[in-house]
Design a protein around this nucleic acid. Structure first.
Lengths: 342, 342
DNA sequence: TTGACATGCTTAATCGTTTAAGCATACCGT
DNA sequence: ACGGTATGCTTAAACGATTAAGCATGTCAA
């Protein structure tokens, strides 16, 4: 309760002195090395807790080269979707006794760059990266030259050079589009995805694919940031066109929520006068007004998969890059509600 | 481009060898020590980048005892409110060249405990802690014995033992309650706050204070987790009571959103048949349906304040604990809309 | 009795950086 | 010419852990 002295760390050799051993023996005892007798081990453990010993991971890392630490770099913690994602990664990582540090680029490439440098200096054993839009295509080469095992998550710079885990954006958007077509819509727009990255282009591929199969053209593609506010403004722009769309497929749920608000601003009833779909199925989607038709992306599963892939990569750095696409399911709610006709 | 060798780190002494200096001189040169000539410094810098030198923070920490690292422990990254909060902390911390590691307890005390231990082993220079409900009251004593400067954020175990930054929950709820009273409500309930911690009790104090001033009693207090879903269910429980309330003050915006949905489930029009207020003013509050009356808590400001307080604490560990309460402002929107009468 | 081998430890080196102390050399005023 | 001081480095010892190699013992089979 009062034995600990401030400002001076308890070390292995202090324990060693008290129990009459070498610090090497103490180190082995604490880690359960089999060449140390059970009795000795017991004495060491007791003395360690008595003195208030704290393992110095920095010192250990210097010697072993392993930090038991991985970095997770994501673009936006404020987006609830990422909360689940990170929780998924963390479950898997924590199980092995490693710990995951979380960092937020806010989709700023410069910030991403400085975080990467910092992680490298810290000597993490691996990284999970959700690359910011505008990331230098050569980044993966650079990272691989650094020798840090890395998994790309949600967005990929190149799936040939590093592992990659994501949701099946293409098929998800395709299914949403098919649904809108099935209930009679012919003028469908796509909203969102302000930067070019894989997560955007895959969605657009699904969008175009579905339309082409029906011999239709997009009724508008408006790029905007993935925020509520941007969605709210985009829908106004869309409605101001000569022959406005009757339905919009949004980049994600956040934008869709904005669109719902924007429609009400314009005096329209979402789901009745205009159909809206989102993407991700965040918690709010079921409770919004009207409830949102969307594609569920299972962020926790994606996170877990990314974590497992990273662990595998750390264990066997040489293996060929893997690519894991987690299926999505569309969930029909009333935001795409009644068929509106043409 | 191809000079770097894998698996073998470039060190100070390698640079030293190439430029014909001691590793000590190289260390000083890289850090801009004034006793090293400009010419030497230049040569060292060039050789360092040529060899692809990477600073080893672990090794430096071992020697200096400083990690230039702080830990932020929060309860729920999935809550958008925390995103801003963390961004605020980070701005202030990053400015000094330090870096902040983010961790998520998910309001689990056991997880919080293991994170704290891990941060201690990592040797962070300081922590910002948003304690999980049910945290041992003796925790602050323990941490202070560890000698790690710590700032409590949003929730406090004890404001006498460590710095504390928070929003003015009491006054905020009081103002919301006064507003509801002013527009005619007499039966007002409080929803949310499932665990006992300061952030809950302060809100309840504001609630009771305002009611008592008008000689009224609460029309119900329902405890529930701070989630949309919980809000949606709580309002049903509330409406099922004999003489149901006509207005509800919710613990935070998330719960309020749930309540809005729950009211619609019950066939009521929120803001017209029943008044609802939230807390925090998250982005969604302005765009929800109906827009939410709430108290703005300025999470970014709180984060910045916490960051600054931590820096001060690291600089002067001996100073008396500070307590900083950031004011809130109520924002009236239509969710508490028309006076409903009694 | 002897060699082989297992057991339970110790010794000493090492990871990469920082820093106090020391040591030349040059420069300056007197 | 001489003490004093500033400049620009070097030497060597840390920081706290891990680990390869070594060294006493004890045990056991032949």
């Amino acid at each position: 309760m009062s034995e600990t002295k401030h400002s001076t760390r308890v070390t292995l050799s202090q324990i060693a002195k008290r129990v009459g051993l070498s610090s090497a023996a103490v180190s082995m005892a604490l880690r359960g090395h089999q060449r140390i007798s059970a009795a000795t081990r017991q004495r060491v453990l007791e003395e360690a807790t008595r003195l208030g010993y704290v393992y110095d991971r920095g010192a250990a890392k210097l010697r072993t080269g392993q930090s038991d630490t991985v970095g997770i770099i994501i673009s936006d913690i404020a987006n609830g979707f990422f909360g689940e994602l990170v929780a998924g990664v963390d479950e898997v990582i924590a199980e092995t006794g490693m710990i995951s540090f979380l960092f937020n680029t806010r989709d700023d490439v410069r910030r991403q760059e400085s975080l990467l440098i910092r992680l490298r200096e810290q000597g993490v054993d691996g990284m999970i990266l959700c690359p910011a839009p505008g990331t230098d295509p050569a980044l993966l080469e650079r990272i691989s030259a650094w020798g840090i095992p890395t998994v790309q998550m949600l967005r990929c710079i190149s799936a040939d050079q590093a592992d990659y885990v994501s949701a099946d954006y293409r098929t998800g958007v395709e299914a949403l589009c098919e649904h809108l077509l099935a209930i009679g819509h012919r003028r469908i727009a796509f909203l969102g995805g302000c930067h070019d990255h894989s997560a955007t282009s895959q969605r657009l591929a699904g969008f175009h694919g579905a339309l082409q199969r029906h011999g239709l053209a997009p009724a508008g593609i408006i790029r905007c940031p993935a925020t509520r506010q941007a969605g709210r403004e985009s829908i106004k722009t869309l409605l101001a066109t000569p022959q406005p769309a009757t339905a919009a497929i949004c980049y994600n749920d956040l934008i869709a929520f904005g669109v719902l608000a924007g429609l009400r601003d314009a005096g329209l009833v979402p789901g009745q006068d205009f159909a809206v779909t989102g993407f991700d199925d965040v918690e709010e989607a079921a409770a919004s007004w009207p409830p949102l038709t969307t594609a569920a992306t299972h962020p926790r599963d994606i996170g877990q998969a990314a974590g497992r892939l990273l662990l595998r990569r750390i264990a066997t750095p040489g293996a060929a890059p893997e690519r894991l696409i987690i299926p999505t399911e569309i969930i029909v709610r009333s935001s795409c509600g009644a068929k509106t006709g043409g």
